[in-house]
């Protein structure tokens, strides 16, 4: 383990069941150290989004429940706490698919993000901070959010999270459906937020390249648990990660589809 600094979030053996029957997380454990960007990678259906929802409490709205294990945030257990209280504790989830308030203006969306803030007199200043990170939103501030482009909506979703001034931000697939250049822009801003605002970030991504380029530490999930973890440099050098997430063979060439049938056999971490 090479984790430095204090741990803000710790999951120990978390088990999540949906609808009382479907077991999705099977003993999930991870640690997020303060001030870092931690990437959580994995295939579709591995349980990445469920992990985030278990942390933020949004699971309950979907009939899911943490049935075993413990989630500790800043030394305090938050397992199965109400979602609105968890936001007040300092965790803010940016949901997959952006979920902006489509019929509200951009600025009202940002104000909604500040709902839990007690220091109302700083809200104005933080609006300016968000506009500074996302200059594109300035001239859109009075537009109805539903008519923004996908990239602008993603910026709005992250800006809205900033307005809550969370200690820990959970980002669920910020690259979803965006053009590669825009993805790069948004990831650079995420990195800046982490560095300048000292916001700890737990990032779920399909785009492993992008995620590993800004993260400090990474976890790889499969079937509801962690199968591999390490500093990003190490993960990037790992042959399996290269093959299954970065699409490279060991000599650095693009992987040929002929070899795909060996997928199961060649995984080494199982």
């Amino acid at each position: 383990m090479l984790i430095r600094g204090m741990t803000v979030l710790e999951l120990t053996n978390v088990e999540v069941i949906y609808d009382k029957v479907i077991l999705v997380l099977k003993g999930m454990s991870l640690k997020v150290p303060e001030g870092q960007i931690v990437a959580l990678l994995g295939n579709n259906g591995a349980g990445k989004s469920t992990t985030l929802k278990a942390i933020s409490g949004l699971l309950k709205a979907e009939d899911g429940e943490v049935t075993d294990g413990e989630i500790i945030f800043c030394g305090k257990p938050i397992t199965n706490r109400d979602a609105d209280k968890i936001v007040r504790d300092g965790i803010f989830q940016v949901m997959e698919g952006r979920h902006v308030f489509e019929h509200l203006t951009v600025e009202d969306n940002l104000l909604a993000g500040s709902f839990t803030r007690k220091d109302r007199h700083h809200v104005r200043r933080d609006l300016d901070m968000v506009y500074e990170y996302f200059p594109r939103l300035v001239r859109l501030r009075n537009r109805i959010a539903g008519y923004l482009s996908g990239g602008e909506q993603q910026m709005l979703a992250i800006g809205r999270a900033l307005m809550a001034r969370p200690k820990l931000m959970l980002l669920d697939e910020p690259s979803l459906g965006l053009a590669p250049l825009l993805v790069r822009e948004i990831f650079q801003i995420i990195k800046r937020i982490n560095e300048e605002e000292k916001t700890t970030i737990l990032l779920v991504e399909q785009n492993a390249h992008m995620a590993l380029s800004i993260a400090h530490f990474g976890y790889i999930m499969e079937n509801g648990k962690i199968v591999l973890e390490g500093e990003v440099e190490k993960l990037r050098d790992n042959e399996d990660v290269q093959e299954f997430f970065l699409g490279l063979t060991d000599v650095g060439k693009r992987k040929s589809y002929r070899d795909v049938k060996h997928y199961k056999r060649r995984k080494r971490w199982l």
């Binding site: 933020s56 949004l58 709205a61 979602a83 609105d84 936001v87 989830q93 308030f101 909604a112 709902f115």
Partner: peptide
Amino acid sequence: DDQQAALSMGISV
């Protein structure tokens, strides 16, 4: 507009 998103803002539905 969006109940789940509101919940994620810490707005108690």
